[in-house]
């Protein structure tokens, strides 16, 4: 699938203005909505993966070393990972710029 144009002529729209490009929400870099970001204290982290499971954006992946990593291109800073983390190893830090 090719990326659909953002400013198509009406003749170029898919039937019923459908989105025919699966997963195209990825094109929207929504990370810049963020007003605060999660910071992990890896000394406390037990690599359980709860943060990754609860992240509504699906932007937290577990690395080869077992530690989580949030993709800041998409993380909106919703704080759900912080609330769900039972070891309390995540803190939210305000975005400066």
């Amino acid at each position: 699938m090719t990326k659909q144009s953002e400013t198509p002529r009406w003749q170029e729209l898919a039937l019923g203005t459908a989105v025919t490009d699966p997963g195209s929400a990825r094109y929207n870099r929504t990370g810049d909505w963020r007003s605060s970001r999660p910071i992990w204290d890896f000394d406390k982290c037990v690599k359980c993966g709860v943060c990754s499971i609860f992240c509504p954006e699906g932007c937290i992946t577990m690395q080869a070393d077992g530690l989580p990593l949030a993709d800041m291109e998409y993380c909106k800073g919703c704080s759900i990972c912080m609330v769900e983390c039972w070891t309390g190893c995540i803190e939210m830090e305000e975005e400066k710029e």
């Binding site: 953002e6 400013t7 989105v19």
Partner: peptide, 27 residues
Amino acid sequence: QQRLDVDNPITMGPVGMPTVYTESKMA
């Protein structure tokens, strides 16, 4: 011609921003 099909996923009824709504109505 097109339908909801898990093997060939499409989105029907997505948001149509002001940049697209007019074209959609024209279609």
